[in-house]
Design a protein around this nucleic acid. Structure first.
Length: 307
DNA sequence: TCGCAAAAGGTCGGTGTTAG
DNA sequence: CTAACACCGACCTTTTGCGA
């Protein structure tokens, strides 16, 4: 919000003023004088977490003096005068069913692990990004081992968490549960969409191999074409309302849009556009019909298995 | 015109990369 | 070391389109 002047010279006293004005404030906020006091209070709140009646994922430490907050300012959109101390993320165990490769706008082959559905932190997680070829092997971008150096294989039992309580992430591989017939994942050297060679470029200056393998098909690759179109209409680019990723897919598959220029002559193909939209609605109606009745029960039974 | 459902838009916070 | 940015999955809000 906006204030014409500070309610008080400090964070703590400002919030106390809010209380005087009738706002509800958290009774758990304290003013600490040392790191030891901060950490002690973190553990105090952690102990009360489950009985609070609302969800929290940690605590935030802030510089009390508002003048100092202004002086310290921000770096990359993040304040230098406040930092979150999060509680350990909830973890869950599940298995890797498959590894799919997605092809992005720039041709990047992005591996995604499909998981047996598992509830973590209140949501059902079925996918987790594997980032790149080396990440699957158990190496970070500097060649250092991650997950104790274990690779991820189809059939593996893995521990996942939602990093920052948001993004699914594989924490570790339960090596004792690896099926005896599990084999190392072979990262494709051909684009799964267009079949063109997928290569890792060498950085000219550093001589280092790019961590990403990319499809060399460029314009002939449908995946790159569609992703390029999605990017073109996205908020960060042309920001075309009503023409999102779903509709780009529909119109591309119907042959109505092949390049960005085709978007601007869509009006000349009104009957075909209407037909494509109608067909999608019918297809969705069929799927709803087929799924009705059993979907919810299935989802619930999957959740129960997790416990 | 209204109510409903689906689609689209927007956001979050991690990882990972490149450029300078 | 900083800055900028792509990417990812899930959730919530807003908009759109349909049938009554």
């Amino acid at each position: 919000g906006y204030t014409s002047e500070d309610p008080a010279p400090t964070q703590y006293d400002s919030v106390q003023r809010f209380a005087e004005w009738g706002f509800k404030i958290s009774p758990l906020m304290v003013r600490a004088k040392s790191v030891e006091e901060l950490v002690a209070h973190y553990h105090l709140i952690e102990a009360q977490r489950s009985s609070l009646g609302y969800d929290i994922d940690g605590v935030v430490y802030k510089i009390d003096q508002l003048e100092l907050q202004r002086r310290w300012g921000f770096v990359t959109g993040e304040p230098r005068w406040a930092i979150a101390h999060k509680f350990p993320a909830e973890q869950a165990m599940t298995t890797v069913l498959r590894i799919d490769i997605q092809v992005g706008r720039t041709g990047t082959l992005a591996p995604v692990a499909r998981l047996a559905p598992v509830t973590v932190g209140g949501v059902v997680v079925e996918n987790v990004t594997l980032h790149n070829e080396d990440y699957i092997k158990g190496l970070d971008s500097n060649g250092q081992p991650i997950r104790d150096g274990y690779d991820v294989r189809i059939g593996d039992t893995v521990v996942i968490q939602r990093a920052g309580d948001v993004i699914p992430q594989i924490v570790s591989v339960v090596i004792d549960k690896r099926p005896p017939d599990a084999v190392p994942y072979e990262f494709p050297h051909k684009c799964p969409i267009c079949g063109s060679p997928a290569t890792r470029e060498i950085n000219e200056k550093t001589g280092k191999e790019d961590s990403r393998r990319r499809c060399t098909g460029e314009l002939i690759c449908p995946a790159q074409a569609v992703e390029g179109l999605r990017h073109f209409v996205s908020r960060g680019a042309m920001d075309i309302e009503g023409l999102g990723a779903e509709n780009i897919d529909l119109f591309f598959n119907a042959g109505l849009i092949k390049t960005a220029a085709d978007i601007f002559t869509l009006r000349d193909h009104r009957p075909a556009v209407t037909k494509a939209l109608a067909e999608r609605r019918e297809e969705q109606a069929r799927q709803r019909e087929a799924a009705s009745g059993k979907t919810r029960k299935n989802v619930r039974s999957v959740e129960e298995r997790n416990y």
